Simulated scan of single mutants.
Amino acid sequence: MSGEREDRVIRVLLAGGGDTFRRTLGDLLALEGDLRVVADAQSSREALSMAEAHRPDVAVLDADEPGSGWVEAARAMRERVPECRTVIITEGGGSQRLRQALHVGARGGVWKSAPARQVAAAIRIVHSGGRYAHPELVA
């Protein structure tokens, strides 16, 4: 039975945003039951090596961290870990940041202030092959 459950778990990498942000988001996502944080990278620059080592299903990259390299990380992940889909999380930049993210291969974008269940929904949609854009990011 546990093998069956494990097959339904979406493996998530969280990158950037500060330790407290990642820990809090990770704890909230764990409450969802079908999401498990398998890697935690301090920055988007570190995210690629973590993605290669842990092979997550979805990477959530902080697009606000100054000099984080999230654009390069998203592009490199698409090429080197193609099974890992990317979602950016941001509190600024709006539609311009979302367009940039989609251009380099990210599949979605969410506001940092969004409720954890909305971030979880975005992860599920992106994992299933869809795209997700928080309505305010599109506006």
Rank of each mutant, 00 (worst) to 15 (best):
Ala51Ser: 11
Gly33Arg: 12
Ala133Phe: 01
Pro56Asp: 00
Gly18Glu: 02
Gly33Asn: 08
Ile88Val: 13
Ala106Thr: 11
Val110Arg: 06
Trp111Val: 02
Leu25Lys: 02
Met1Gly: 11
Val81Arg: 03
Asp62Thr: 04
Leu102Thr: 00
Val9Thr: 03
Glu4Tyr: 06
Ser68Leu: 09
Pro66Cys: 12
Ala120Pro: 05
Ala39Gln: 10
Ile88Thr: 03
Gly109Phe: 07
Val138Cys: 13
His103Gly: 11
Leu25Asn: 01
Asp57Glu: 13
Ala63Phe: 06
Ala30Trp: 08
Glu32Ile: 04
Gly130Leu: 11
His54Val: 06
Gly130Asp: 12
Leu25His: 05
Ala101Thr: 07
Pro115Phe: 03
Arg5Gln: 12
Leu98Lys: 01
Arg131Thr: 12
Arg8Glu: 14
Gly108Arg: 03
Val104Glu: 14
Trp111Glu: 11
Val71Asp: 03
Gly130Tyr: 09
His54Gln: 15
Pro56Cys: 04
His103Thr: 10
Glu46Thr: 12
Met50Glu: 13
Gly3His: 12
Glu52Asp: 03
Glu46Tyr: 00
Arg78Asp: 00
Ala116Tyr: 09
Gly33Val: 11
Ser95Gln: 13
Ala59Asp: 03
Ser113Phe: 06
Pro135Leu: 13
Pro56Val: 02
Pro56Ser: 10
Gly108Val: 01
Cys84Gly: 03
Leu137Gly: 09
Gly3Ile: 09
Arg124Glu: 11
Arg23Tyr: 00
Leu28Gln: 15
Glu136Cys: 05
Arg117Asn: 14
Asp62Arg: 03
Met50Asn: 03
Ala41Val: 06
Ser43Ile: 06
Gly69His: 05
Ala47Leu: 12
Ala59Asn: 02
Glu32Phe: 05
Gly33Asp: 10
Gly16Ala: 08
Glu32His: 11
Ala116Arg: 01
Ala15His: 02
